[in-house]
Design a protein around this nucleic acid. Structure first.
Lengths: 321, 321
DNA sequence: ATGACTGATGTTAGCGCTGTCATTTGCCTT
DNA sequence: AAGGCAAATGACAGCGCTAACATCAGTCAT
């Protein structure tokens, strides 16, 4: 691969001039610029940002850590993030923790070793080691998808506890008696559960049940059998909600006639497009995954202004409850 | 941030010894290693892979270019890819082309400027410039999600043309008369359409219709109105298929009673988990998104063995057709 | 005892670029 | 005419690390 100085030699200028043509073309005389550009084209020069990063102490990269990217609501956040950052020349380095604290720490180290200019993650570090690592890194850190009580730096998320509370209030107002929560036991799902549970109990309702499920749908399809007598379910995300509805259908507990009140109300979280398209359509907590990503990008780019952004959520009522 | 030599000074060794503790601990005497590790811990040292990459000409990164990552089948591929590569210490640099040729070229340049050790992309470069860039890069290139006639290097995909053909054959065998294809007009969707169209016409059927839709579901929900008289639809992906079924339902053209033959057969592509959970459950072409990612990772890691892997597909028949 | 060899560590010279300061030229001001 | 200034270009050092070789003990076979 040709280097800056190879281009410089061919164009009859010094290396720094070629560097300027690439980064600060305004500083180079039009005629010189043309010569350099011709030389770059002739040699097929592609700038080496690795060397540039070392010399300038600016890598132009950001680390992004998500639990998982496949079939997940976090994909929207990554998309929003990279839509904001790519036009600015930032590269997104993506890593997955797979909901595993050890792997999370490992990936944090791996990301930091690439000297990103900021690190954006879903949730907060699971371990003290991870938190210490981030604090010492000296770069903007954005925690997302939650509103941690003691954030490391910036935050772009929503109140999972309040979301659980809103669902509980809605279900009780609808006259439901026996509530349950299904989903994973990651920190954000657990926060939703606590909001759901506390609110239901504070309203004098029977204590809700909690069923912890695998991350794939098969668990939620089987869940209705585990929850006899339950007449309202809050699922930690739309995928679980739709799986649960499938289980209800098999059990003969789902009305296809959409205007009717469902024997078992189901509320999801995430507002997948699918939820609007199925029958009965899925009631859900809408969150703004891409806005979280975009906001996180803006937060890492500026040191001023509010550092803790609550993007909120909305209870979207459709036919499932 | 502390450097190698700061650690070396504290541990009373030379910089290279610290470097060895990080990369090749077996070469360092246990006692020395312990001293160095203590010094690293004390200073909170995090290795600088940017400098390491420049010195060793190995960045330990791979570029990944996908059309889009949000709500998409490509997320599985990225997940598979990074599950294979992260344990080996590779960083995944993710970029999105948004189905735009100019942006694709731009992102390819941006990726190559980070000197990845391989580049994995969905499809093939849209422009000659892009192809030239990749060919000159001198790294393994893996094209995925298709089987290009003249691949640049390695391939991990399936035959989109054959998939379209399989769907057409199935629908005709079922006695359907009036076929249509809905979806985008990206290269892979177009290949599916050609297989579908050619096969239907070769079988003597009426020429299928093709409806090109936006990437979001609203277009597919409205699609039934655009296709009067059609009794079988192949959607370029499951999202479109489910959106179309939603439109059929509104139009009174969807049987909820799942055993019955549907007035309009619908076949998707991708085998989203959702498709299995909804009613009527979605017939689809199952492809192996994560296997594509894993295979791509293996192909970039080895120069030997077959370079063109066909991961195949399966027609999965459920209730929608 | 001698050379060959292994294991542990160090020295040196870059990797390809950019920050920081010259230097040169031409033009404007007073 | 002298000084001041902006525009265009260059020289040089160094970013933090590692490849390649060099060094130095200690071990072993002969």
């Amino acid at each position: 691969m040709p280097t800056l100085s190879a281009v410089a030699r061919l164009a009859g200028v010094s290396a720094i001039t070629v560097s300027r043509v690439v980064r600060l073309p305004g500083l180079v005389a039009p005629e010189t610029r043309r010569r350099v550009e011709a030389a770059m084209r002739e040699l097929g020069y592609v700038r080496n940002q690795v060397a540039g990063a070392l010399a300038s102490a600016r890598t132009g990269s950001v680390g992004v850590l998500v639990p998982t990217i496949a079939n997940s609501i976090f994909a929207d956040t990554v998309q929003g993030l990279s839509d904001e950052l790519e036009p600015l020349g930032y590269a997104v380095i993506l890593a997955q923790s797979r909901y595993d604290a050890a792997r999370e720490d490992h990936m944090l180290r791996a990301l930091l070793s690439r000297r990103p200019e900021a690190l954006i993650m879903v949730g907060s570090p699971a371990t003290d080691d991870g938190a210490r690592l981030l604090r010492r890194a000296g770069i903007p850190i954005v925690e997302t998808w939650d509103l941690p009580a003691a954030p490391l730096d910036a935050v772009a998320g929503f109140d999972n506890y309040a979301a659980g509370g809103a669902v509980a209030r809605h279900l009780l107002a609808q006259g439901r008696q026996s509530l349950a929560f299904i989903g994973g036991d990651d920190p954000r799902a657990t926060r939703r559960w606590h909001g759901f549970d506390d609110t239901a109990q504070a309203a004098g309702a029977k204590a809700p049940r909690r069923l912890i499920l695998d991350r794939n749908a098969s668990g939620s399809v089987a869940a209705p059998a585990e929850l006899p007598g339950v007449d309202a379910v809050f699922a930690a995300n739309d995928a679980h909600a739709i799986g649960f509805m499938c289980g209800l259908r098999t059990a003969g507990l789902l009305r296809n006639d959409t205007a009717a009140r469902q024997p078992v109300a189901v509320i999801g979280l995430g507002d997948l497009e699918m939820g609007r398209l199925i029958a009965p359509s899925l009631s859900t907590i809408r969150v703004h995954g891409d806005a979280i990503g975009r906001t996180a990008a803006k937060l890492m780019l500026t040191r001023s202004g509010p550092r803790h952004v609550d993007l909120g959520f909305e209870l979207v009522l459709r036919d499932s409850g």
